[in-house]
Design a protein around this nucleic acid. Structure first.
Lengths: 209, 209
DNA sequence: AAAAAACTGTTGCAATTGCAACAAAAATGA
DNA sequence: TCATTTTTGTTGCAATTGCAACAGTTTTTT
């Protein structure tokens, strides 16, 4: 995230008591919110990590989204028609800011500083969100497991010279994130290792190409 | 798209000659822009339809995105690291507004009306874009061809009582959009018809459930 | 109006992926 | 610390998907 968005301003303004804002802490595993009913709130990750989860009728779990520092989420970003039950759970202990709105783009009557700052920041936050959603689509449109894995590794090593990294997910979760079967993914990882493309040691992976 | 964004204001302001804006017309099949180099521009669809296309090294074409009235696109929305050549082509004759920026979130020195309007509208445009990207992710995370098709049909019939619709894509393009093999998709459509879930007549489909 | 190009519908076969199951290892928590 | 739960690594088998190919249809271009 390379926005200029300053979370200190949020918290500062919270102390000034804009009544539309609430900050809550969640422990790992706790449900942060659901997308089942309209809540008219935007959620910001102040710290920690949360996942947007979907279970389908076969019991398949999919990690639809994964949100970290300064990411925004909430039912307002989600198309209304999907008849899935989506919910957000904390992957780590997390601090979440909830901003409740009547109409997102009208100014609050108090014209509080927070709200001004929010309006200015929204575009930037949204833009960042678009970029990361596009990155996700880039992954999901890959045609097979191998390409999904390699594209994901590409992201993890992006910008760094080192070709070794530790996966931020468990393998179970990684499969759910890439929307593929775990055992098929493990098999493909083994193939990638056997064919000399990667070296794999637990959750530490080195790219050899 | 249910924004309050008013494209007339854009065009009006164009006449007032903000030098950051250009409007161009493209005929079907023409390349609108590429995401290969940094162009510092946001593109708006004023009319028509354009596709964001990726070809992978196997020659597979994927329709990464599809943009219609009031949608925004451009390389600024795309993660920098993907080493694919992405380009946008006109699916229909289209009218595209290009907005060139130095820094997206600083005001242009002239402080022209267009720019004010833009700043105010950006959040809304971006929010809409997020929603449609999430819808796309919803599709792409479905675990098999059948579920992708049914989820896509769901979108097409959303809001309407009628369960009959004409596909807005050719079958070839639909497969590229869902990131699946065309012949496998045709086979699945046939199965869906044989099993009585849909009725299919050319590009006209009726849901029977 | 004829020729060329693109799209549809279909199939056999091969490759990939998903499913189920289980033992071993690691992480969690009581 | 010990018991329980979760994750990892693996495999055989079945189901799904992709690939290649081709004939017929429709659309586009000349």
């Amino acid at each position: 995230m390379d926005t200029n968005f300053d979370k200190k301003i949020f918290i500062e303004n919270f102390k000034h008591n804009c009544n539309r804002i609430k900050i809550k802490n969640f422990v790992k595993g706790e449900t942060v919110t659901t997308y089942i009913e309209k809540r008219n709130q935007i959620c910001f990750v102040l710290s920690g990590e949360v996942d947007l989860i979907r279970y389908d009728f076969n019991g398949n779990k999919t990690i639809i989204g994964h949100f970290v520092d300064n990411d925004v989420f909430g039912e307002v970003f989600y198309p209304a028609n999907t008849n899935n039950e989506l919910f957000v759970t904390a992957r780590k202990n997390s601090e979440i800011l909830f901003y409740t709105y009547d109409s997102l783009f009208t100014k609050c009557r108090r014209n509080c500083d927070f709200h001004k700052e929010l309006t200015n920041s929204l575009s930037e936050l949204f833009l960042d969100q678009i970029v990361s959603l596009n990155l996700r689509i880039e992954l999901l449109t890959k045609r097979n497991i191998r390409e999904k894995l390699l594209a994901y590794f590409e992201i993890l090593t992006k910008g760094s010279i080192r070709k070794t990294f530790t996966l931020p997910y468990s393998y179970t979760d990684l499969a759910d994130f890439l929307s593929i079967d775990r055992s098929a993914m493990m098999r493909e990882l083994k193939l990638l290792a056997d064919e000399g493309f990667i070296k794999k040691n637990g959750s530490k992976i080195t790219l050899l190409y």
